[in-house]
Nucleic acid binder design. Structure first.
Lengths: 243, 243
DNA sequence: CCCCCATTAAGTATGACTAATTCGTGTCCG
DNA sequence: CGGACACGAATTAGTCATACTTAATGGGGG
């Protein structure tokens, strides 16, 4: 009795739920361009290929369709859509693209988005931040200072992420706040994936301190300017690493 | 007899596909706060209430779950999540919220987002726009001038939307480009829903012409400044209409 | 050249079964 | 006597197989 395949898993990440596993396999494949736009998949084929029921395959396709990664039409099948159609703000799609071959382009898009959003968020934060948020900002800025030397990149990253998240949340704009996860992913990617063996630049650290100060002093213009420099540095850094 | 129910209709839009109809009913209900966070739905109950099979109900729930509007857990049911969890960038969610009771807040969030993104997009467009896009920009700006007097609001709107869409596309940033639909929805909402019986302000029209000129002359700073004034005007207008 | 019909794949429905999680109950130990 | 832990029953989502319906598409016949 060779009960084969009972535990052989094709997909590296084992999400819970069969449909989630299928999604975690199909989504990255599509965003990576493994199935070029126009490629037609059939749910029945997917079901047999992944050894799941048609029900499960259909549910995964439904989710992909809601992300505009595919389009399902009768008598035709499930057609892969071109990247222009994709919901590029969907956190799931962003994650998939950051993990795949599209990583560079995705990182560039997100960094430009940051350069637009974060300065404005900083200005709003200066107007609207609660005392607790001001304190948090200062705390994390000082944390960045403390961990900016001596190869403490992981600890530095924690403060960096928390700092930007607090600014975005303090802007009191739900759409800005939602970008916290995205910024976290970008910052984490820079530390973990890209070349960043050296300590952070002291200028960057100082700028974060400046933002915290400006917010505390309700100086919107200064907070915006400092944050703008931070995001411009991030873009410049990206151009140096991958021109 | 135009018996137009203001909220009595269970399935306002006849989407094709049962699951789409269920989604079109559940989604707006949730985003409108009709089911407060923590409310527990059961797929079986949904199936019987909407007279569809569990298969259909499950697919709709899957999509809602992918938007983080609900969370599905065994032995518990389908729990409605708080607004902070929602994928507020999902075009579907945006549409639902703009159509429901959350309209004001949603419009405000989106206008702030515009004020961050569009100026930066205008600067990038000045650097990267193709000759065709420059021509399109000029054409639509002139179209706005031509339709800015004499109660031609609908025609004006068409040019306004096309103008902003072109700027966002010309920025060569996929995430900016994706906001074209959102901006279109905001502009259309301003014309159709809000009080806007009077002709557009001539200053606004001139500013659009300025942006087009600046982009054509590759003057990023001027394009950004003009667009920033446009979006600031939009925010001011919102404050006047709904303080 | 157009219309009709056969084909195909998605969409829907149903029933049976699995699995995970919660909650209540009962027992054992302190 | 009381609390903590463990076990089991109940509940609900998850999975599967199958049969049937619907709508496009493409080809064949008039």
């Amino acid at each position: 009795m060779t009960s084969q395949g009972a535990g052989r898993d094709e997909t590296p990440a084992r999400e819970r739920g069969l449909h989630a596993r299928l999604l975690a396999s199909l989504g990255p494949s599509i965003t990576a361009g493994e199935y070029p736009p126009g490629t037609v998949l059939r749910t029945e084929e997917l079901a047999s290929r992944y050894e799941v029921s048609r029900t499960v395959a259909r549910e995964a396709v439904r989710v992909l369709e809601s992300m505009h990664l595919v389009e399902s039409r009768r008598r035709v099948g499930v057609t892969v859509l071109p990247p222009e159609e994709w919901d590029v703000y969907d956190p799931q799609v962003i994650t998939w693209r950051l993990a795949g071959t599209d990583r560079g382009r995705q990182l560039r898009s997100l960094t430009v988005l940051r350069s637009a959003v974060e300065p404005v968020a900083a200005r709003l934060a200066a107007e609207l931040a609660t005392p607790e948020e001001c304190a948090g900002l200062t705390e994390h800025a000082l944390g960045m200072v403390a961990t900016s030397r001596g190869q403490q990149l992981e600890n530095y990253l924690v403060h960096d992420i928390a700092f930007h998240r607090t600014v975005l949340r303090a802007s009191r704009n739900e759409m800005f706040a939602r970008l916290g996860d995205v910024v976290a992913a970008v910052l984490a990617g820079r530390t973990h994936h890209d070349v960043m063996f050296t300590d952070p630049r002291q200028e960057a650290v100082t700028l974060h301190v400046n933002v915290a100060e400006a917010v505390r002093e309700r100086d919107g213009a200064r907070a915006e300017a400092a944050m703008r420099t931070i995001t411009e540095d991030a873009m410049a850094e990206l151009d140096v690493l991958a021109p």
